[in-house]
């Protein structure tokens, strides 16, 4: 009897150890998306190699303070999401709700900051047609921004679910899937920001 229980708890432990958070399908989506960004990063580097002067002089016109602060915002947002998942698993509904609100607020802050940055560039008459560097700058950050917008919708839904206490603490698959997507949005920016703003 006790031996049986031991093997049972061992297999539970094993299962817990090999757990992939969220739906496997979301991981397929995330990996495909990251592959596309990998290709985009390579295209940017090859473009930079062909015209280093234009890329360097245009890069210097970017304000790294925006990019750096945006990185801090997204990292903090991701941290809130981790804490929210943890809170749900501990059945601390209030905590989960507040952390998700925090993560959502960070996402909004990122969008506001990006809007200010784009407005500044457009006011200087710089668009994606100005040169190849700005073409990459606007398209790469624009595609990433669409991911942020989609992620904020997901966070808002999760926040409402946490408020209504409809997330199952035993199997928070929806929350974990959303979290996986949001962390991907974060890590893509972690790579994209130095690539565009800091590579000299």
């Amino acid at each position: 009897m006790s031996a049986e229980r031991d093997t049972c708890s061992l297999s539970v432990l094993e299962k817990k150890r090999r757990h992939l958070p969220g739906l496997e399908g979301v991981w397929v989506f995330v990996t495909a998306d990251m592959t596309v960004f990998g290709i985009l990063f390579a295209l940017f580097m090859v473009g930079r190699d062909q015209d280093p002067e234009i890329f360097e002089s245009s890069r210097q016109s970017l304000n790294p303070d925006f990019g750096g602060v945006n990185t801090l915002i997204l990292l903090t947002s991701s941290w809130f999401v981790v804490l929210a998942v943890d809170a749900v698993k501990r059945k601390e509904g209030d905590g989960a709700q507040h952390y998700l609100a925090g993560a959502f607020a960070c996402g909004v802050a990122f969008m506001v900051s990006k809007a200010i940055e784009y407005t500044q560039k457009l006011n200087e008459n710089i668009t994606l047609l100005t040169n190849d560097f700005y073409m990459y700058y606007f398209t790469l950050t624009g595609i990433h921004l669409m991911h942020v917008v989609a992620g904020n919708v997901v966070l808002a839904v999760l926040w409402f679910m946490a408020r209504a206490r409809t997330i199952d603490p035993e199997r928070p698959t929806v929350l974990e899937s959303g979290a996986t997507y949001w962390h991907m949005v974060d890590l893509l920016w972690v790579m994209l920001f130095p690539l565009l703003y800091l590579v000299r």
């Binding site: 150890r17 090999r18 757990h19 992939l20 990292l75 981790v82 979290a179 890590l187 800091l198 590579v199």
Partner: peptide, 26 residues
């Protein structure tokens, strides 16, 4: 530049392993 990109890679790995819980993944 190389240091900044290596640090970025290191940061991405931290996010994957500790935030995305790949630490415990298959």
């Amino acid at each position: 530049t190389v240091a900044i990109m290596v640090i970025a890679g290191f940061k991405v790995r931290l996010v994957m392993w500790h935030f995305m819980e790949l630490r415990d993944a298959p």
